[in-house]
Design a protein around this nucleic acid. Sequence first.
DNA 1: GTGTAGGTGGTTTTT
DNA 2: CCACCTACAC
Length: 720
Amino acid sequence: MDVSPILDSLNDAQRSAVTEPEGSALILAGAGSGKTRVLVRRIAWLCCVKSISPYSILAVTFTNKAAGGMRERIEALLEMSMVGMWVGTFHAICHRILRTHYKEASLPAAFQILDANDQYRLIKKIMKALDIDEDKWSSKTAQWYINVKKEEGLGPEDIKTNKDETERQLLRIYTQYEEACKKSGLVDFAGLLLKTLMLLKENEHILSKYQDRFQYILVDEFQDTNALQYKWLCLLSNQHVPVFAVGDDDQSIYRWRGAKIENIHNFSKDFENVKTYKLEQNYRSTGNILTAANNLITNNKERLSKNLWTEGDEGEPIYLFSAFNEQEEARFISEKIHEWVSHGNRRDEIAILYRSNAQSRTFEEVFISTQIPYRVYGGLRFFERAEIKDALAYMRLCYNYKDDSSFERIINLPTRGIGEKTLSLVRNCAQKRNISLWEATILLLEDNQLTSRSRQALNVFLKLIGSLSADIKSFELSEQIDHVINKSGLKNYHGKEKGEVALSRVENLEELVNAAKTFSIDEENYGDMSETDAFLAHAVLESGEGQGKQWEDCVQLMTLHSAKGLEFPTVFLTGMEEGLFPTEHSLSEPNGIEEERRLCYVGITRAKQRLFLSHAETRRRYGSDMYNSPSRFINEVPTDLILEVRPQAHIKHKLYRSTEIGHTGDDGVLQVGQRVDHEKFGSGIVIECEGQGSSARVHVNFEATGSKWLVVSFANLKVL
DNA sequence: GTGTAGGTGGTTTTT
DNA sequence: CCACCTACAC
């Protein structure tokens, strides 16, 4: 057969990887080296040349978006349907397996998935019930602890009771939390993975079913897999199914979330017959951009060596803009965008990247006033909105009365006179008898111990859910949701509120009905689930876009993390300041700086043609002015690549100002960060140094009087 | 049960 | 500084 479309325009390394005959392979694919292309062609190669049925292939990706894109690209390349091939995130795949074997996994058929937010709420509730002081052991820590333990593959019963008081408390919470999840038929994200792993370990016939089925396993973004996912891969591959793992250790930016880079190192040891391929030719960026990225990343000690190169031109220099404050930084970028657009270019070819979400604000303000359409990525997504989750909680409760988390969410929403007092009676009863809140409510009503008022209210609620759940069983999915949001009073409740927000809530609820209408059950991910089950799972696993409406040509604003995997002709890498990027936090973490540097590397390599780095001398943060020196990462880009742009030079600054200059009268060394004392202005901190000898000046931020430039030879500063 | 004053904390994020 | 949460007063 003609394999040319599959091997067409691949370079040698890519071709070797795609046609790897036997065994597992580790593809170290640098940024822009055609990683996705290799994955897609590999699958095409397996199907067409090796005549492997799509049914025998499992491809795992990091996001749902990537999964969809991959299937599409293969189908486009081969002009055939890939029905039967499993492509999805670890979570989606585990979810599917658990649905199929819910009995063996000791889960109810109607088990629901708990998202991070629900998980947090549940943990808080449990801590309150256990009477654990939140000031001493924060609920955030507890959540972190639970997820870390799960990712290590440890259930509460696997952890030995420690003498350490903190750990004992955390374990108590973990135990209770698992109990609560089990009782309500809820599984959190890490739980999907852990439960699947247990299921496969404990049920030989199920494990061999999947081991026999999947003859080839492919993993994208391998550097971002965590310990649990790795174990899962080992188990499924059973040492002999070839695993094709594609990743880039230099782009590992999720270690803080449990991603284990060691997986890349261990891969060759744990799997048989592993060949390693390096994809180092970059097809994305100009020579200068690549040189900048390469130079930056060589400052990391802990990495597999790899050097990107391109056949392309050097291209434009790396532009650097030093702004006085964050406003000016945004204004400068706004001007550049106007310039760009007036030359007939598109705004969506421009990305503005920043370290933290809060930084988008200044850009938004300036873009509104200078009339630049923009789109901010990230933030609250559709299925994460409170009103949507409320509506879905009704649905979930209708299908599973034991879902306590949903029960609590909507018992008094809209308000129906069931307050804290009644609710705590229900909670107590449920806890004492180890039954669900729903069952406890029924018991309490029979017991006749409640005030007539709360009995009335609880009765109304039970009746409502009862009749809703009876009504909707015969309806289409979208009709079910429409029915629920109307009959529950949810829509009316938000309709009566005033203001923009309320209006958008009603619109969102209507949009939910719409989403249900257009939801087509994707056989591959949801198998033989009912449409409703599939939709509810879909809502949690794939929480949707933050802001719809992509039709307008918009400048793209996003964090460095969310830029991973994307590329843009022009990239503005903003807020390049010590304390911001790298973050203050990272300085005290063991390998914090290296992760920040990888993040910077990701940022730089997003750019195809033009890269702007910018930093601000002062930045308003948490209400007070911060004076940050330029990020060390700027200095790690070779000076000769950089062109400083300064359209409105107010003061002449040195680009690379030394951090140490001259001497004070009492012969102390003056350097950035040094505390000094001045006769008149009092004490302050040196935030900048400039010049040499008698013309040397320092910028000092005085506690009492604010910041001032002082000539060192006159100021008579005392080093403190 | 709703509204508002006071306190607090505040990277990155997909599933 | 601002968004979010909690606690209390209507």
